[in-house]
Structures are given as structure tokens and as C-alpha cells.
């Protein structure tokens, strides 16, 4: 019995990590869907959002230095969201607009450049030390689960999972039911045709980068609360890659399920297979899994099938 409970704990902890991966992967999916571009800067966007949020909240930030007060959390989060929207607008104006006619690989290269620029900018503005981000998410284990089921689950992880659920539901509704969401999917399918029916790409791109900027903010908050705002945050982007390969680059549910599979997979593998091979499976398990998927199901679990008519 104790053994089963332990497995359950490992699985739950994996699920929660998976949710965190999924949050990062989501941002990738949004931009990839709309523009066919793998946005290398997504991880840095999350970092940048977390840094900006920290700046609004802390007394050693720019905001405090300029205005002499800090924002309460409920105001700081919308303010950061606004900054992410502004950032999206600037990115469209300064980078994407000039590359519309170019190959997708060139846009990809541009996002790599963007990642470094943003990272440098973050460093320059906010400094490179690790900052604790506290927006009032309860820390520690959930007492209720511990008392009633004898399970150890972090409260933060429960909050992250709930937030992710809300976020995904909102995105799904936005994509499936609204006019702009439909236009976003249309652009993802065929740029030229989207242009021809009067959808303006610059506007769509600002929207999609804004949305993924806000998703990055949520990811940044969760990761920042978990392990502090630090520059290694931009590296979780790498963990999102196998998640995307698993779930499919174009699928929102895919990003979620992919994240969960990888989260659970690496935890379970670490605990049960790890000791046999000397541990540290967690670091490479995801990539091996992704490799397998690339071989046998390159579009991922939920990726859009490439429609080919004969």
C-alpha cells in the first residue's frame, strides 16, 4: 500500500511538473500555429515577463525608483500583461514586419536574435541576480491532502495546474469561437489566402505575440514562484521542445498532454529505472522520448495531419 502511495506521489509530482512544461510549450504552439515560426525567444519572453513583474513588486526595482511606490499584485499582473502586449507590438514593428516575405527559416533565425536581445535587455534593466518572486501563492505542501490521503503535493503546483486549466479553456474558446480566433487559424493554414480575404497579417501577428506573451507571463509567474526569477528560466524553453514534438507543434491540447506525459515519464523513469543506470535519467528522458516520436509519428500525438489529396 505504501508503495502504491509512493508511486501516486511520483505521478502527481510528474503531472505538476508537466503542467509547468505545458505552460511554456503553449506559447510556442500559439506562434507556430499562426506563423509557422518556431519562436526561439519564447523562454526568454517568460523570463522577461517574470523580471518585469518582479520589478513592479519589489522595492529595489526601477518602478519603485521612479515612482516611489510598488504596485500591489492585482495591479502588477495586468501591468506586466500590458508590457507584454507592448513588447509584441514592438517586435512586430521592428522585426517581423520586414521579414513577412521571407522564408520561415529566416523568421526562426530572427527569433534567435530576438532571444539574445531580450535576454541582454533583461540583464541590463533588471540585473542578473536570482530574484524571489512572491505573488502570494501559498507555499509548502497541501495540508488537506496530507491529512486525508497522506499525499505530499505542493500547493504551488496545484495552483499552477488550476491556472493552466483556466488558461487552456480560455484559449480554446478564443480559437474556436471568436472571429479573431478563426482568423488566427486561417492565417496558420494559408497566409496568402488569409491576405486575400482581407485579414491583415500585421494585426494578427501582434495579437498572437501578445497572447503568447501573456501565456509566457503565466509561465514566468509559476516558474518564478517555484525557483526564483533567474536567467536559467529561458532554458526551460529547451524542455518545451520534446513536449512539442510529442504533442504536435500545432495543437494546444497536444502541448498540455505532451507536457504531462513528459513530466510524469521523467519522474517515474527517474525513480524506478534511474537506480539501475546510475540516475540522472530526468535530464535526457524527454529527448529520447521525443526522438522515438520523430521516428514513428513525426506530427506528434495531436498535430495537424498533413492533408494530402490524391
Amino acid at each position: 500500500m505504501a508503495f502504491d502511495l509512493f508511486l501516486l506521489e511520483v505521478v502527481i509530482s510528474g503531472l505538476m511538473t508537466g503542467v509547468m512544461y505545458a505552460l511554456v510549450a503553449l506559447g510556442f504552439v500559439l506562434i507556430f500555429k499562426a506563423s509557422g515560426v518556431f519562436n526561439f525567444a519564447q523562454g526568454v519572453l517568460a523570463l522577461f515577463a517574470a523580471l518585469a513583474l518582479y520589478d513592479f513588486l519589489a522595492e529595489d526595482g526601477w518602478f519603485f525608483a521612479v515612482f516611489g511606490f510598488t504596485l500591489p499584485v492585482w495591479l502588477a499582473i495586468p501591468a506586466t500583461a500590458l508590457i507584454m502586449i507592448l513588447l509584441a507590438w514592438v517586435i512586430e514593428r521592428a522585426v517581423l514586419r520586414f521579414l513577412v516575405k521571407q522564408e520561415e527559416i529566416i523568421l526562426f533565425m530572427a527569433t534567435i536574435g530576438l532571444a539574445f536581445v531580450l535576454e541582454g535587455l533583461g540583464d541590463l534593466l533588471f540585473g542578473s541576480d536570482v530574484k524571489p518572486l512572491d505573488i502570494g501563492i501559498p507555499q509548502g505542501a497541501s495540508d488537506w491532502l496530507l491529512d486525508n490521503f497522506n499525499l505530499y503535493v505542493e500547493k504551488l503546483e496545484i495552483v499552477a495546474a488550476a491556472t493552466a486549466a483556466v488558461l487552456v479553456t480560455a484559449l480554446a474558446i478564443f480559437f474556436q469561437k471568436t472571429r479573431v480566433g478563426r482568423a488566427l487559424r486561417a492565417v496558420a493554414d494559408d497566409h496568402q489566402a488569409a491576405l486575400s480575404v482581407g485579414i491583415s497579417l500585421d494585426k494578427i501577428w501582434v495579437i498572437v505575440w501578445s497572447v503568447s506573451g501573456i501565456v509566457a507571463l503565466v509561465a514566468g509567474i509559476m516558474w518564478g514562484s517555484k525557483s526564483g526569477v533567474q536567467f536559467s528560466l529561458s532554458l526551460i524553453a529547451l524542455k518545451a521542445l520534446p513536449v512539442l514534438i510529442l504533442g504536435g507543434f500545432t495543437s494546444v491540447p497536444g502541448a498540455i498532454v505532451g507536457g504531462l506525459i513528459i513530466g510524469v515519464g521523467e519522474k517515474v523513469a527517474e525513480v524506478y529505472v534511474g537506480p539501475l543506470v546510475g540516475g540522472a535519467i530526468e535530464n535526457w528522458f524527454a529527448y529520447v522520448l521525443a526522438l522515438g516520436f520523430l521516428l514513428f509519428r513525426p506530427q506528434g500525438l495531436f498535430g495537424e495531419r498533413i492533408i494530402e489529396r490524391v
Binding site: 478563426r182 486561417a186 494559408d190 488569409a194
Partner: peptide, 18 residues
């Protein structure tokens, strides 16, 4: 140049985007 992954009706509705 239809939007392949959109349904027929969604395709038609994108025409009304403007």
C-alpha cells in the same frame, strides 16, 4: 487556397472577417 484545416463553414465565415 482554402483553409484546409478549417471546416467549410469556418472557411466561409473568414470571408466576412472585414
Amino acid at each position: 487556397h482554402c483553409f484546409e484545416h478549417l471546416t467549410v463553414e469556418e472557411n466561409l465565415l473568414t470571408g466576412a472577417y472585414t
